[in-house]
């Protein structure tokens, strides 16, 4: 197991390098630069800026400079948010995005898993239809619709919760964004759990348990363990996506996470910010895929790493 984890960390390095390389040159291919404004800057100013940010050097040299800086943990200065380095921006934003994402994913597992299990146990009953129906709604109604509705109802009309803002992570401020972030995930997890549970409850080994006259809770426990496998493999990439922030939710609720940096950075040709986001997302995806593989092996003894 340990050697497997070590091997995975080692193979992650070339993967990251490829991702960094491709995105570095891709963003440079995009027309325009970080200092292109409506009204062009004076040539002299432009030249100075390019020199300060080392944009005047040949591209391949810039690539090497960036790569060696990243190796030292330095993601460089942001081009648009000029008082900050990319590292500082992430140091402030990432914990916020991760808090939201972690809460949302936990909520999705808890609520989605429970609803899916109930629906599977009462297949083709009213409860099942309600869960399946809600699941379809959770998937189809976009979060930029759900979020304002919640804000109007609970923030303005009922005035139970603050409409927006981070407020140093006060729980009351987190409720609505976490729910909006979690809703589609709840829907997916519920649907997957339901399908996997139904399949498991019909399997031969569950029939064996029933033939042995074992109580209901033993049967459900066995079926749940088997049903968790497909859900786990879905949750890995989903967690990586949630923990690295959501543009829509963070923008609507005015939360200073990192989700918006991707869009802002890309639109403004803030090369270093985009690159930083790419690296962070890539690291999360690699990490959570590893977590999924480890969890899989814990649940399923048939998986071995040799």
């Amino acid at each position: 197991m340990l050697s497997f984890i070590m091997r995975r960390f080692l193979t992650a390095i070339p993967t990251l390098l490829v991702i960094v390389t491709i995105s570095f040159f891709l963003i440079r291919l995009a027309p325009g630069g970080p200092f292109d404004l409506e009204r062009p800057l004076e040539a002299k100013v432009m030249e100075n800026l390019n020199r300060i940010y080392q944009l005047d050097k040949p591209l391949i040299q810039q690539y090497w400079l960036y790569l060696s800086a990243v190796m030292h943990g330095d993601f460089g200065p942001s081009f648009i948010l000029r008082d900050f380095t990319v590292g500082e921006l992430f140091a402030r934003g990432l914990p916020i995005s991760m808090t939201l994402g972690a809460l949302a994913i936990s909520l999705a597992i808890l609520v989605g898993g429970t609803l899916g299990t109930i629906a599977a146990l009462r297949q083709n009953s009213l409860a099942d239809y309600i869960v399946t129906g809600l699941g379809a709604m959770g998937l189809t109604i976009p979060n930029f619709v759900v979020a304002p509705v919640l804000q109007i109802v609970f923030g303005l009309a009922l005035a139970w919760l603050p409409v927006a803002g981070w407020a140093n992570g006060t729980p009351r401020n987190l409720i609505m964004p976490v729910i909006v972030l979690a809703l589609p995930q709840i829907a997916v997890v519920a649907r997957m759990t339901r399908a996997a549970m139904i399949e498991n409850l019909r399997s031969n080994h569950i029939r064996t348990l029933r033939s042995l006259g074992l109580p209901w809770h033993v049967i459900v426990r066995h079926a749940l363990r088997g049903a968790s496998l497909p859900v786990i493999s879905y949750l890995g990439p989903a967690a990586a996506a949630l923990l690295t922030g959501s543009v829509v939710v963070e923008t609507i609720f005015g939360l200073p996470g990192i989700g918006r940096y991707f869009v802002e950075g890309a639109l403004n040709r803030d090369y270093t910010l985009v690159m930083g986001t790419v690296v962070v997302v890539a690291v999360f995806v690699l990490l959570f895929n590893l977590v999924v593989d480890i969890l899989y092996a814990v649940v399923d003894p048939r998986i071995r790493f040799d």
Partner: peptide, 29 residues
Amino acid sequence: SPEKLNRYRGSKLTMIFQEPMTSLDPLYR
């Protein structure tokens, strides 16, 4: 009901099946 039937199933009446490969839970010892 299944609960009442469980007094007989597995103790007085038992069954083995056609599919030995899949009749045991793969995730438990």
